[in-house]
Design a protein around this nucleic acid. Structure first.
Lengths: 344, 344
DNA sequence: ATGAAAGCGCTAACAG
DNA sequence: CTGTTAGCGCTTTCAT
């Protein structure tokens, strides 16, 4: 069971050359005689030689690895649906470039700083992709502005920092515009907590669309909830009690939209007849409701891909796609039209 | 921006000792003088010294890292809902033990073998957790039976292999039993493709429960679908056309259960009045349907935790929890009672 | 075209 | 108690 690993030395010995030559031969260096090269390769293949990357890393001072760091805080939960998609995008690019992915959670919020530092300083990874926990985080600040190779998944107030962000403003604009174009004028916006940047941005997108379509913004048409389905349900109930009249709902996420639909159906309103509904996120559930939910999709796999490309570009200067040179990228959201808004 | 990393040598120089002493001092070796130790620690702290783990790994011949390998094949999609949970369980244990997690997808099926080998042979990780793609996979076979430190998430036909598996049989038994206890006798079982071991096991659990409760198994009450919501819908339609009578449905997963509920509602059957429904998986959506869906939960975080513990135990001989000594573990499923079956 | 030797950062055996 | 030395596996001058 205790298998000895065959090293370059073994190959060299068997092939009757020095390790230096063996190394060069396997690296395909043109200086080495073609016959020797063939021979070394033959031996390596026969002995199933696999280079030890730790040795190589030590020498090269790089690990060919990037780390994805995400704080495992409870309220991060509502971003979870995207996590797998993000991962898919990232891994796709990494695999293409022969990089590895180190996944790192910060166990507790206070340990975060340490965690970030370690990963980079201990040379386990050459760069990191940072999935933000909340709007402000002094720990993140340090690492992001330290000049280390970091891609931040969100907005950052400093132009030197590489970032990839989704377009919450634009997505909300799209959603609102869709309702406006369908002739709806009184759009109830169920927002998430306004302490989150996401919620603020989506509200702004909503406002801007109204403005562009010359519809007066009415503060009473904005009701705050907390991104859960239940809170979406209650938001409608509250609006009802307040006797607010509206012909459509734009919810800050799909869960709230689904809660809202339930509430509306309980109240006997038809969707989209009486009230049209748009959500945000395009979670799987949006395809299964009745009626199916029109919503905004955020291509998290694209975000992952761009982030990985940016980082690898910074690390290796090998650009793999266009636009990678830009420090900041905003990935546009997409309108996914289903039944809950009528039309097609 | 090109920061020089401070190494042990730097610490030693500044502290006026040899690197050996510095190393011992930082390792807390009792042989080194307390004053020297303090001094070295002082210097290390002041210079913000972080040991280079690559160097350490090379020396120690271990990476303090385990890899999670999962094949990124399309039909793996239906297992996705669990992936994040699994990850949570794994990382929790790894963090506790100071291990790192390397995530590895096999880009294509043919590359899998290579991918498995590499991770271990190139010494990037000390052990791996294997998330199986399909029932049979000759690539997996090699690595699992190679004697390398591997934990396989599923069943394996060889007793020496470390495995952690969920209990599909038991879960299906629970679901069926729940219906039987509620007085339902004609349980329609909507299965997934019988080419998957999951589907087979769940069908077996269903049969066994019937048998234990002295209810005759009727083959016509088993209809095969493909784990999508649409197929669940169609399964009911087909059963209807075949004029099969039933008073309840046990679906092989929640998606099909939801599809089935839709179909039943379209047909004017009340749930659970006319037909009780149980799903499997406890996806988030199960809490949002109307009525909410009674289902079976598989604690994937527990599976992840056990897998990580087993592996670390094998690697370090440090047992962190009971039952880790066992080569094989089966993690029991749990019945989650909601509205779709009536009762409470 | 090939080999000898140095060194990446760390630890451990052995002296002193 | 501390320093010297060697070596983990690899690559890369620098000689030959």
């Amino acid at each position: 069971m205790e298998r000895e690993h065959i090293t370059l030395k073994d190959i060299a010995k068997v092939a009757g050359v020095s390790t230096a030559t063996a190394s060069l031969a396997l690296a395909g260096d043109p200086r080495v005689n073609i016959k020797t090269k063939r021979n070394v390769e033959e031996v390596a293949r026969r002995l199933k030689y696999v280079p030890n990357e730790i040795g190589r890393s030590l020498r090269a001072k790089k690990a060919e690895t990037i780390a994805l760091i995400f704080p495992n805080t409870p309220h991060n939960a509502f971003t979870h649906p995207y996590f797998v998609q993000l991962l898919e995008g990232i891994t796709e690019i990494l695999v293409q470039n022969g990089f590895h992915l180190l996944l790192s959670t910060s166990p507790t919020e206070t340990d975060e700083a340490a965690s970030y530092d370690l990963i980079l300083k201990n040379r386990r990874a050459d760069g990191i992709i940072l999935w933000p926990a909340s709007i402000k985080d002094s720990n993140i600040l340090r690492i992001v502005e330290s000049g280390y190779p970091v891609v931040y998944l969100g907005r950052w107030h400093h132009d030197d920092v590489l970032t990839v962000e989704r377009d919450d403003f634009g997505g909300a604009y799209l959603a609102t515009e869709h309702l406006l174009k369908a002739g709806r004028k009184r759009i109830l916006h169920v927002t998430g907590p306004q302490s989150f940047q996401v919620s603020i941005d989506r509200l702004e997108g909503y406002k801007r669309a109204l403005q562009d379509y010359k519809v007066l913004f009415e503060p009473q048409l904005v009701v705050e909830a907390d991104y859960t389905m239940e809170s979406g349900y209650e938001a409608i109930t509250r609006a009802e009690q307040a006797a607010i009249s509206y012909d459509s709902v734009f919810a800050g996420n799909d869960r709230m939209a689904i809660g809202a639909m339930k509430a509306l159906q309980t109240l006997g309103r038809s969707i989209p007849g009486d009230v049209a509904v748009v959500g945000y996120d395009n979670i799987e559930m949006a395809t299964m409701t009745h009626p199916t939910l029109t919503t905004i999709e955020q291509p998290m796999d694209v975000i992952g891909r761009i982030a990985a490309e940016k980082l690898i570009h910074k690390l290796t200067n090998k650009g793999t796609a266009e636009g990678i040179e830009d420090k900041q990228s905003v990935v546009p959201a997409k309108l996914v039209i289903r039944e809950s808004c009528g039309g097609k």
